[in-house]
Write a protein that binds this DNA or RNA. Structure first.
Length: 333
DNA sequence: CGAATTTGACCGGCGC
DNA sequence: GCGCCGGTCAAATTCG
């Protein structure tokens, strides 16, 4: 497990993990402060917030590689067959979390699930199906080099299922935010190609503050920034998509002393890049944003064309790292 | 004892 | 129409 620094560019989401077209792949690498991103994704028109994502990575940057098959088969929403953007974070057990828009009426029985015993399934069920035939919520997949499957991200999750993944020896776990009002879900699985990589996909938007560490850990992380959580969509020009970051700052600042559950191996240390475990991006560094709206709704560039690179100051934090200026939340300044 | 996890069953969409 | 597969439910079990 030493190849923990695959270049941001050598990662191919599709080949690794097919996701939905409305998800995003994020890659992070701590080698330098570079953010590569190919953006463009399809959000729900009703989604107030495009999405938010967070990556962790102290002293490093994130590489956002977003794929966009714009084709959102309107009928099949949550099929994991389209590529999704993924954020890979080379810093091992970092947290990743995020969520994205959505106004999930909850229980989006995408499929499965049993109807309440008392409900005359026939009509209710069918009805429900037609109506909320799947409210797609943007999803964001983060790829993180970690030995820990379930990365701490400041939220509490309850596992509600686990399934074997086809073509992969590793199972996929399904988690749901423990907050009853929160509909955010996330899937966690290990890459079959690179067992050291954990792929975490977030779906939905948190409607509450982070709660700090679930178990054992002290309450080191508590988010106060709720304002930035509810965004106003459309604000952004161009695609009109906003990408918001979770309350807990854009990255989870894990004091190096805190470790998710089990002991982490040295290599799993989240202190990426040495001692700056609290710094996401070295101040003064810059992030390069590669924008390639691959056919997405807001594509400004042709997928076939070379990816333009924009350099932005990182004092803007992760947002500046992975969010294209055009997608910023106006409120964010 | 309450909360979280495990795990098999079930449901629905999609491809063949 | 059938089977496969992803996703979810919920009872049982485990953990703190």
């Amino acid at each position: 497990m030493d190849n923990r620094h695959p270049g941001p560019t050598d990662f191919t989401p599709e080949s690794t993990w097919p996701l939905d077209s409305d998800s995003a792949y994020f890659l992070t690498d701590d080698r330098d402060s570079t953010v590569l991103s190919e953006f463009g994704w399809n959000f729900n028109p009703d989604d107030p917030i495009g999405a938010e994502e967070r990556s962790d990575l102290a002293g490093s940057t994130s590489t956002l590689v977003d794929q966009f098959p714009e084709n959102s088969s309107s009928s099949s929403a949550l099929r994991s067959s389209d590529p999704a953007p993924v954020l890979r974070s080379a810093s091992t057990n970092q947290s990743v979390s995020s969520s994205s828009s959505g106004d999930p009426p909850e229980r989006s029985t995408g499929s499965g699930g049993k109807p309440p015993p008392e409900i005359p399934s026939s009509t209710t069920k069918a009805n429900k199906k037609k109506v909320q035939k799947r409210i797609r919520q943007p999803r964001f997949a983060f790829m993180t080099k970690s030995e820990v499957d379930h990365l701490e991200d400041g939220y509490r999750w309850r596992k509600y299922g686990q399934k074997a993944v086809k073509n992969s020896p590793y199972p996929r776990s399904y988690y749901r935010c423990t907050n009853s009002k929160c509909t955010v879900k996330k899937r966690v699985e290990r890459s079959s190609e690179d067992p050291t990589t954990v792929i975490t996909t977030y779906e939905g938007q948190h409607c509450h503050h982070t709660v700090a560490f679930p178990r054992g850990g002290g309450n080191h992380i508590i988010s106060h920034d709720q304002s930035g959580f509810s965004a106003a969509a459309g604000g952004g020009g161009g695609g009109g998509q906003l990408m918001q970051l979770p309350p807990v700052s854009r990255f989870m600042y894990y004091p190096t002393s805190i470790q998710p559950r089990s002991q982490l191996s040295p290599s799993n240390n989240l202190t990426v890049g040495g001692s700056q475990s609290h710094r996401l991006v070295p101040a003064g560094s810059t992030a390069h944003y590669h924008d390639q709206a691959g056919g997405g709704s807001q594509s400004t560039t042709n997928p076939d064309e070379p990816i333009p690179v924009v350099t932005v100051p990182t004092d803007e934090g992760l947002l500046g790292d992975i969010v294209p200026p055009g997608m910023r939340n106006p409120l964010d300044g």
